[in-house]
Design a protein around this nucleic acid. Sequence first.
DNA 1: AAAACACGCAACCGCCTTAAC
DNA 2: AGTTAAGGCGGTTGCGTGTTT
Length: 289
Amino acid sequence: MDVVLQSRSSNSMAAEPEEETELRRGPWTVDEDLTLINYIADHGEGRWNALARAAGLRRTGKSCRLRWLNYLRPDVKRGNFTADEQLLILDLHSRWGNRWSKIAQHLPGRTDNEIKNYWRTRVQKHAKQLNCDVGSATFKDAMRYLWMPRLVERIHAAAGDPTIGDTSCASGVRSMATTAATATTYPENNSAASAVTTSRSASSGSFTSELCGEEKNLHVHGSGEKTTSGGDWMQEADQEFWAMHMQIQPEDGGLFHVDHELSGWVQGFSDVGVSADNLWSLEDIWKMQ
DNA sequence: AAAACACGCAACCGCCTTAAC
DNA sequence: AGTTAAGGCGGTTGCGTGTTT
């Protein structure tokens, strides 16, 4: 069943007579959207190839399906992801990987395409800034112990949680436990290493040693952050991440360990006389590499 | 003001699975 | 059991737009 596809760069709707049977590609027009919406309203969705023909749309069934599911469906939620949604994405991705449609099932109104785009544009960008792979232990550490707790802080702050002033590792993860536990249910919750599993153990009292290695609270700097779901919370967490992996002083005066993956860098920094205090910007880190 | 660059996102591609015949 | 078409999914592309130089 060969079809002739009109070039993506050619958006002209003024088809020549001999092109009447050509399938269109590229951005959808308002007319096409209305045609699809009206047809589905009358006849329902499914059997997309037949639907495309019956509706008089010169599109593939696949294209119609994609347009409907990702854009035209009335329950599609638009706009930025909330902190809850971002937290959920990070958590579910940590256990399921790139199973976008599966992840999307737990975010009502969000499409797999949108989540995939979010991951690629936001999350992978930060992995790149940390100069690590998204599958690396370094990145997972940053995600679990800093980005996710930071998101939970934002969720609680937005909800007016008075305990949110305490931004310690323990309190952040403790908060994450309650939020993640109530955010959704996980039909395949079998990942012992996942952040939420960890945080669930946190609620039973063993979180501090699990997450921080020692019974020490890491004091992270309040940055006058906004309590809305927007903002570059990852950037802030990046800074905390590097601060935590340098040998900075916890509240009791002890020292944190330095991860194996980062020890080389840390040594390099100390070689050139760089302390944790002036490592507030990733830009500086890149320059020093 | 203009060119270069970076980013976000809609849409397409190709592969795999499933269902119908 | 084999074939084929449709649906579903993850990966990738390319365009529009905003930002930086």
